[in-house]
């Protein structure tokens, strides 16, 4: 151990969640803005929260331009753990909800590209994020998407290991999770990315269920009910029972729902939201589709729409 002069200031409280308080501050040397996430601990919290452990564990090692960087880990005077993160003033949900902003096709493409690159980086390091949603996709002052909130992340389970199905906010939850599967892979994140893609085009949540049961209903009404025919062995999953059978949507129906989507955009969305996780594409495959190489070119991050204030 050695004494190091003060590095950061903590200035203003900007938010509070169940397990952390977030402050705005500065890196003293560079005057750069930072966010400090102070983890609450205490008798009733059973020690250090597991989300904090996960966040520290994965963010300390992941370095990517589309993933939030964890600059430092501190324990402060009061014994609480502090995570110093880069400061990101906006998130994708804010932009989606801001009706004063018009999204161009090229903007959506640019965001999708950055999201997929970030998620791909997690997956190639065998890390599942498990909570992808617009509100966890933060936006830097220069317009870059940064994937944040690794509180539910975990490394890919080894075969035979049981994982919990109770992950991902329900609107973005893949069907295998809705069926209570204890074994799943990075394809759960791919599904979330597909639903976010749909939301970027619709400007409203694509599958907004209000409960676990209704989420199944909403999901399958939009994308068809999985059967043994299009998803072998699906009926063996724990919560697969007494489902109302909806036919899968035809391409035309999807075309009508996503009016502005080009053919290749629709293709990409369809392969991201395949019901059978084995048929869903990987991030790598998604990044190599024609959608990203055809015109229009993705907007440069600095030219993307910003929060109107």
């Amino acid at each position: 151990m050695s004494d190091i002069a003060a590095n950061y200031t903590k200035e203003k409280k900007v938010g509070e969640g169940t397990y952390a308080v977030v402050y705005l501050g500065k890196q003293v040397k560079t005057k750069k803005l930072i966010a400090v996430k102070e983890i609450k601990t205490g008798m009733f919290k059973d020690g250090l929260d597991m989300s904090a452990i996960r966040e520290v564990k994965y963010l300390l090692e992941l370095r990517h331009e589309n993933i939030i960087s964890l600059l430092d880990v501190y324990s402060s005077e009061n014994g609480n753990l502090n995570l110093v993160l880069e400061f990101l003033p906006c998130d994708l949900e804010v932009l989606i909800k801001d009706k004063n902003i018009v999204f161009q096709q090229a903007d959506v493409k640019s965001w999708m590209l950055m999201i997929l690159r970030g998620v791909h980086h997690c997956h190639r390091n065998y890390i599942l994020h498990r909570d992808l949603k617009p509100n966890n996709l933060l936006i830097s002052p220069t317009g870059e998407i940064k994937i944040a909130d690794f509180g539910l992340a975990r490394s890919l389970g080894s075969p035979g290991e049981n994982l919990t199905a109770n992950v991902v906010t329900i609107w973005y939850r893949a069907p295998e999770l809705l069926f209570g599967s204890r074994h799943y892979t990075s394809s759960v994140d791919v599904w979330s990315v597909g639903i976010i893609f749909a939301e970027l085009m619709l400007r409203t949540p694509y599958l907004p269920g209000t409960s676990d049961a209704e989420q199944l209903e909403v999901t399958f009404r939009a994308l068809g009910t999985p059967t043994e025919k299009n998803w072998p062995n699906v009926s063996k999953l724990p919560w697969y029972n007494s489902l109302k059978i909806y036919p899968p949507p035809t391409r035309n129906e999807l075309k009508n729902r996503f009016i502005a989507a080009s053919g290749s955009a629709l293709d990409l969305m369809i392969s991201l939201t395949q019901l059978d996780p084995a048929k869903r594409c990987s991030c790598e495959e998604a990044l190599q589709t024609v959608y990203f190489t055809e015109f229009p070119r993705p907007t440069k991050p600095k030219d993307l729409p910003k929060k109107s204030s």
Binding site: S2, E11, V28
Partner: peptide, 11 residues
């Protein structure tokens, strides 16, 4: 800023 505080730290 009124409640500004500095981290004094070891590493």
């Amino acid at each position: 800023m009124a409640d500004q505080q500095y981290f004094k730290s070891s590493v």
